[in-house]
Design a protein around this nucleic acid. Structure first.
Lengths: 187, 187
DNA sequence: CAGCAGTATATCGGACCGATATAGTGGGCG
DNA sequence: CGCCCACTATATCGGTCCGATATACTGCTG
């Protein structure tokens, strides 16, 4: 989790610990705590994935070393049979630019399959909990379950868009697209 | 987190640890692990919030005691200045039936304010990351950030619905609604 | 120049997780 | 009948991540 985040962010440029936290927060889905970050950076250094150099007194700059780069590649492509939790997948997506198109589609498809499975589970448990076995759920529990279904559906639709975009990108490759992009939402 | 889940689920009826896990999974937003659950149950028993009784050999039935019930009330109403993370709020919602209308609305409003704040932060960091300071984000990072905004917006709209429903419920109270409910999605 | 917000690193105890161990139960199927 | 397999059920271990807290420097604003 943290390893993927740190190695991914350091891939393009060295950063301070504090900067890493901010960059990660900017992605919007994980506000990592210092209680994870600093021990995590130590761990990564001990494992030989990154190097730190003191930078004018109290600051420390962290940079990726080759061993860390190959570990990053591993983390981006490994097939974790564990549920591929949301955060993990989003993190991967944030570093998709380091993967080739085929690998991206594979990863997107995996995620999609999990969500379809989860959707089926949600619907099943709605039926179950509404059956004659136990007390019917109150309207808040119902709202909660419905929200789960709707947001999973929205995520599947979102993935479908990403998959379609990736396929059409592969059909008509334009080398600059991924890095520059049109800033449609730039305001 | 776990405390709230366990005490809330035991409020209406005693359950086995394994059943607790299943009930929680049925709510759809948290598949608690045994590595949390069983140590957690021990902790709650040690603190005097629940009691366990062996039930024909290897099973254990857990039940709420009065001290646990008042702790549940505390957990449901305390104002955690910590981010009121999603899971925590959803858990509260699952036990909203134990709160009065005014407290419910207060809790919904708090959550809504947080989401509005988060939405503003997301939009700000989109603008920031698109500025001339650093490298423009690739299309996957963009998709990720857009998704964050959309899902936060959807959640705010969802909360608005719940708040409206709660208000109209308070205007026209019908004692059975909350517990029975029309099973619109029962099919 | 006092105060306050932001930058920056670090540690501590505790919550939660995934993996793993162990074992009983109940059903399907040859 | 005997075998296997999936499910029920409890438990522990090492490790990750978190919130709280401490410390201290910087830069701005009133």
């Amino acid at each position: 989790m943290l390893d993927l985040a740190v190695l991914g962010l350091l891939r393009d440029a060295p950063l301070h610990g504090y900067e890493l936290k901010q960059r990660l927060a900017d992605l919007g889905f994980w506000r990592v705590s210092f209680g994870s970050l600093y021990p995590g950076l130590k761990r990564l250094e001990r494992q030989g994935f990154i190097e730190s150099l003191r930078d004018g007194g109290r600051k420390k700059t962290y940079q990726l070393v080759p061993k860390g780069q190959s570990h990053l590649e591993f983390l981006l492509t490994e097939e974790t049979d564990t549920v591929e939790e949301e955060r993990h997948f989003h993190l991967r997506l944030a570093f998709f630019r380091y993967l080739d198109g085929a690998t991206r589609i594979k990863s997107l498809d995996r995620r999609r399959n999990e969500l379809v499975q989860r959707l089926a589970d949600s619907r099943r448990s709605m039926r179950k909990v509404n059956g004659r076995g136990q007390q019917r759920p109150d309207r808040y529990t119902r709202a909660l379950m419905e929200r789960g279904v709707r947001s999973t559906e929205a995520d599947i639709a979102w993935l479908d868009q990403l998959i379609a975009a990736e396929r059409s990108e592969q059909a008509r490759p334009s080398s600059t697209e991924l890095f520059q992009g049109g800033s449609q939402w730039a305001k």
